[in-house]
Nucleic acid binder design. Sequence first.
DNA 1: ACCAGTCTACCAAGCGCTTGCTTGGTACGC
DNA 2: GCGTACCAAGCAAGCGCTTGGTAGACTGGT
Lengths: 196, 196
Amino acid sequence: MTRTPRLEDRRERLIQAAARLFNDHGYERSSVRQLAESVGILSGSVFHHFASKEDILLAVMTTTIETMTERLRAVTAASRDIPERLTGLIRAELELLHGNTRHGVAVTFFQWHCLGQDNQQQVLAMREEYEKVWLDALGQAHQAGLIHTDPFITRRLLTGANGWTIYWYRPGGALDLDALAQEVTTLLTGPRNQDL
Amino acid sequence: MTRTPRLEDRRERLIQAAARLFNDHGYERSSVRQLAESVGILSGSVFHHFASKEDILLAVMTTTIETMTERLRAVTAASRDIPERLTGLIRAELELLHGNTRHGVAVTFFQWHCLGQDNQQQVLAMREEYEKVWLDALGQAHQAGLIHTDPFITRRLLTGANGWTIYWYRPGGALDLDALAQEVTTLLTGPRNQDL
DNA sequence: ACCAGTCTACCAAGCGCTTGCTTGGTACGC
DNA sequence: GCGTACCAAGCAAGCGCTTGGTAGACTGGT
């Protein structure tokens, strides 16, 4: 029997399982025993891969944010003008929130306070890179007259609006992701720019 | 010594203390012992006032939502036209999120999932009354051409945008509540209506 | 005016359980 | 023969909550 599915593989599987578990029941309510069971090992064995429970949460968040930033940068690079860039970023963030990455993203958004201060600081630093991509794009959009509110405040309001979709939006229903992204874009740019 | 500060008083003090505690550390991380200590009694005594720990969270949420709905209805009744009503409601929700009620409101917003299913249902029913006030106002605003996105979706995006301010907005800084309310209003109505 | 009876608000102690995590040992692959 | 990946067992601490009891306030009959 393959007892050694290679360290990194197991670790990655644990991170994915943890993202799902923490998102479903919350970090505090999830036990290491539950996590271990979900990948078919015993609770003590988890600590061969991670130093502590909090270390698992940290790993979920850092890997997630890396994916998020990567995705946003790809969209930025691929877009040819400012309106396209804005819609693209909105669409990308909604995809991150509702696609395969959704568990990790939700945990990163809403379980922030479960980390100790040092780890919070580390995650914050990574989040700032992600936010920088946004602020650049919104700054350009503001200068181009595409949005009419302060870029910094706009981004924070948008963060909330997008993040909250976790609690009500379900893809596959009457409203698809494109339509939702369109609504959000209209909210930012006003009715005159609603068909970019 | 006044050993009997009347049942209702103690209960109310416990609810307020619980709101603060749950908001500061999260429901799961807060212990009944901590709550008891913060009002100067022992942990067992808390269960003279509440049936369970979850019952305390439920009490925090129900009393908070009652206050919230009351406040929104007062604003609705006092407003004389549709634009004034919209700005008033936005301003009122931001006040609820950042005034004295902030702890309870934050808990109601973000610790929802800590309740069991039955209690979730009960809170949901109360929240729907609150949301109804919003949906009525946004429906009117949409018909009047003041907002350009679907009222239902708009409300959900607005819920997120406003709720998220908990994590970044601090009253007393450079941006006061009126200015923030103005930014949110501009986001909803577009630049043409930004000076209602 | 008095006192017995009842009720309220709380303490002191601790039960049963779950938690994150540790330790010592072992099967297996390279 | 060494290191990796895991199991089996369990520890110490903290958890929500229960129990039995008591001091003091309130109430009604005489």
